[in-house]
Simulated assay, not measured.
Amino acid sequence: MARGVKWGCSYKKTTLIVCSINIVIALYVLRSLYASLYTYSSHHDLGSAVKYTPDQIRKMEDSIRIRKAKEPVKLVEIVNRLKKESNKEETVVELPLQVKIRITDEILQRLRSLNANANISQQRGILIRALESDWAVLSENIGLWLPAEIVNQEHDDKPEGVEEEEFEEEILPGRPVPPECHVELHTDYDGVAVRWGLTHHKESAADCCQACLDQAKRAKPGEKKCNIWVYCPSETGCYSPDIYEHKNQECWLKYAEKPKLNFKDRYSEDYRNSHPNAPVIVPWVSGVVSV
């Protein structure tokens, strides 16, 4: 009897141990299955992310670009602009005082034209007609009429046969140039320099001409006498194809047996192409005097 009880206790312990082992094995199997499933899912996701071919990627990019291009951007801008315009408050333009007085006088004149026995309703009627039915005529009478279309035409008042002057009338600074100086605007004469203008400045073209006349009178026998004067009246200086920078009020005194022009009025297009710094108009003022 005692042996049977002892055997029963051993059987229960054995059963408990076997059950515990089975539970541990079951948990291990479940954990392994879960880990395998998670690993498979991760590999599957990674594999699906890189399965797109270059052609498929290009098509997707084209699709995105087409969708963006088809967006009604201009339509949205127009709608927004219309909303802003519709939300703007109406601008009330106040009439000038003179116009108000003329309107008042017109209305009073119409009211005075009524008979003395006119009642309030008649006065109200004439007032309404003045402001509504006859408003177009009233507006025209008081100067508020605006034409439907304004056409501006350019009229050429220049007499026939009169050509436009090539240069506008130019006034030289300083005192007037005497007639004996024979001044020529926009002119540069050639000649041998008897006085360099780089260090010889005069306040006006008349003074430069006078310096030329004085040099000719004081010249010693055998010395060249000045018979050409060249002056720079431009405040920004005058152009010359040499290496020097010619400034305002330079006065060159020259001599030439037969005076010859360097430049007159304008520098030619060919000259300006070969000399990019040359202006269009000759800036110098010159004159040939008799000695």
Results as ranks from 00 to 15, higher is better:
147 P>G: 04
169 E>L: 10
169 E>P: 05
113 S>P: 05
131 L>C: 13
134 D>Y: 09
124 R>G: 08
177 V>M: 02
154 E>P: 08
174 G>F: 07
163 E>F: 14
124 R>P: 01
124 R>I: 01
155 H>D: 06
173 P>E: 07
145 W>S: 13
172 L>H: 06
151 V>H: 12
111 L>P: 03
146 L>F: 11
180 E>G: 00
146 L>I: 09
136 A>H: 11
162 V>A: 02
119 N>G: 11
167 F>K: 11
184 E>M: 05
110 R>Q: 09
140 E>Y: 07
123 Q>W: 06
170 E>Y: 15
153 Q>R: 01
173 P>Y: 03
119 N>K: 03
192 V>T: 11
109 Q>T: 04
178 P>F: 01
134 D>L: 13
151 V>S: 13
161 G>W: 01
151 V>W: 08
129 R>T: 06
175 R>S: 11
170 E>W: 15
183 V>M: 03
136 A>K: 07
122 Q>M: 02
115 N>H: 14
156 D>A: 04
135 W>I: 00
157 D>Y: 11
188 D>V: 02
170 E>H: 14
135 W>D: 10
189 Y>V: 03
173 P>S: 06
139 S>Y: 14
157 D>S: 08
144 L>T: 05
122 Q>V: 02
133 S>R: 01
186 H>F: 12
125 G>F: 15
192 V>C: 09
146 L>C: 10
115 N>A: 15
158 K>P: 05
147 P>C: 04
169 E>G: 05
150 I>D: 09
190 D>C: 09
179 P>H: 07
173 P>C: 00
145 W>A: 14
124 R>K: 14
156 D>R: 00
167 F>V: 03
146 L>N: 14
158 K>W: 10
167 F>D: 01
188 D>T: 01
126 I>G: 02
108 L>W: 09
139 S>D: 15
136 A>T: 12
108 L>Q: 10
154 E>G: 07
164 E>D: 13
149 E>P: 06
120 I>K: 05
141 N>T: 05
115 N>L: 13
129 R>H: 10
154 E>N: 12
187 T>Y: 07
169 E>Y: 10
139 S>P: 13
111 L>D: 00
165 E>F: 07
189 Y>G: 04
149 E>V: 13
136 A>N: 14
115 N>V: 02
129 R>W: 12
110 R>V: 10
133 S>G: 07
158 K>C: 10
117 N>G: 13
111 L>F: 05
146 L>D: 12
179 P>E: 12
131 L>A: 09
111 L>W: 00
184 E>R: 00
137 V>G: 07
143 G>M: 05
169 E>Q: 08
186 H>G: 05
128 I>L: 14
157 D>E: 13
168 E>Y: 03
170 E>C: 08
175 R>T: 12
114 L>K: 07
189 Y>T: 00
185 L>R: 01
191 G>V: 01
157 D>V: 15
171 I>K: 11
142 I>R: 04
187 T>M: 14
185 L>V: 08
161 G>M: 00
114 L>N: 04
150 I>A: 09
